[in-house]
C-alpha cells in the first residue's frame, strides 16, 4: 500500500464516521458538522489519489478548493437555518415534525 492509498483510506474512513454521526445524532449542530466531516473525507480522497508516479495532478486540488467554497456556503446557510429552527420550535432538532 502506498502512502497515497493510505490517505485515501483515511478519507473513506472520515466519510463513514461523518455518515454515522449524521445518522445517530439528534442535535442539528453535530449533524451539520458531520456533513462537513463527510465532505473533508471526500476532499482527502480527491487530493490523496492526485499523487501520481510523475508528480502531483493539480486538477483535483483545484476541485477541492471549489468544493471547500461550496461547503462553506452550504454550512453558513445550514447554521443560519438551524438558528431559525431553534428559534421557532424551541429545540435545534428535527424531532418536531409537522409531516409524516
Amino acid at each position: 500500500m502506498t502512502p497515497a492509498q493510505l490517505y485515501a483510506l483515511v478519507g473513506i474512513g472520515l466519510f463513514f464516521v461523518g455518515l454515522y454521526a449524521l445518522g445517530v445524532r439528534q442535535h442539528l449542530l453535530p449533524r451539520i458538522l458531520a456533513l462537513n466531516i463527510m465532505g473533508s473525507g471526500v476532499f482527502v480522497v480527491l487530493v490523496a489519489l492526485a499523487r501520481r508516479s510523475d508528480g502531483v495532478d493539480p486538477v483535483p486540488h483545484a476541485m477541492v478548493i471549489t468544493g471547500i467554497v461550496v461547503a462553506v456556503s452550504a454550512t453558513a446557510l445550514a447554521l443560519r437555518l438551524m438558528l431559525r429552527v431553534a428559534h421557532a420550535t424551541g429545540s435545534a432538532t428535527l424531532t418536531d415534525t409537522g409531516d409524516e
Binding site: L22, R31, A74, A78, V85, T89, L94, G98, D99
Partner: peptide
C-alpha cells in the same frame, strides 16, 4: 413547518 422541512431537505 417550513423551517423544519427546509432543514431536513438541506441535510
Amino acid at each position: 413547518e417550513a423551517l423544519v422541512a427546509a432543514m431536513r431537505y438541506l441535510l
